[in-house]
Amino acid sequence: MTKVLTDARSIRIKGRSFLALVLSPELPLDWWLGRLDDLASRSAGFFLGRPVVLDVADLEIDRKQLKSLLDELGQRNVRVMGIEGGRPSLFEPGMPPAMKGGRPAPDFEVPEVDPADPPKAGKGKAAAPITPEEVQPVRATASIIVREPVRSGQSVIFPEGDVTVVGSVASGAEIVAGGSVHIYGTLRGRALAGSVGNASARIFCRRLEAELLAIDGVYKTAEDMAPNLRGQSVQLWLEGDSIMAERLN
């Protein structure tokens, strides 16, 4: 039995991470720009449609020089989405925003020839990285297991992956998982799956009495849930903007 819980659309606010190219200019800038031109001539369109972050942490320049650097890059079709490591005094209105908290990823290999498939622009997500198997190394999905009942007022927050609870989740307790939520007991509190932007995350529970359910930012309160699912063993997933539910037998 599959049932759409409601059609009401809600606004989604969520986080998502993209892979950006990071350029670290070196002084003197003319010389560095020359090398950039050299690279561009070897692989035309390398920067086309790619988000670029400018790392100026080790660069001794002032605001005026930064502005002219951005202009130079603009003329070469390098669109800078953000500036990392800059002092607040370097920025002025109209510049790309300052960025913080970047996490390191493997270095990009610049292809010697043009890629056969130019990246498709404007597909909603940022252009796919050229070598996804290199930049996103295969990892086992992280998960945690909670072996006790989750009591009212407690939160289990695990953005890295799945949460499994062997026990019940009380009214007023919440489970927030980056991946799926599995509850081998009664779910009376809140369960939020796919909290960092994962539409394929699911919620499973042995008995549904939940106050609130959310997958990838789309949520339902107890009032919006189909009454015939109450007290049942249920799995929930996302189809478009609707939370779907099905009894597990």
Partner: peptide, 8 residues
């Protein structure tokens, strides 16, 4: 529910 909170 309050008791549950206290148990936690």
């Amino acid at each position: 529910r309050d008791s549950d909170r206290i148990i936690g």
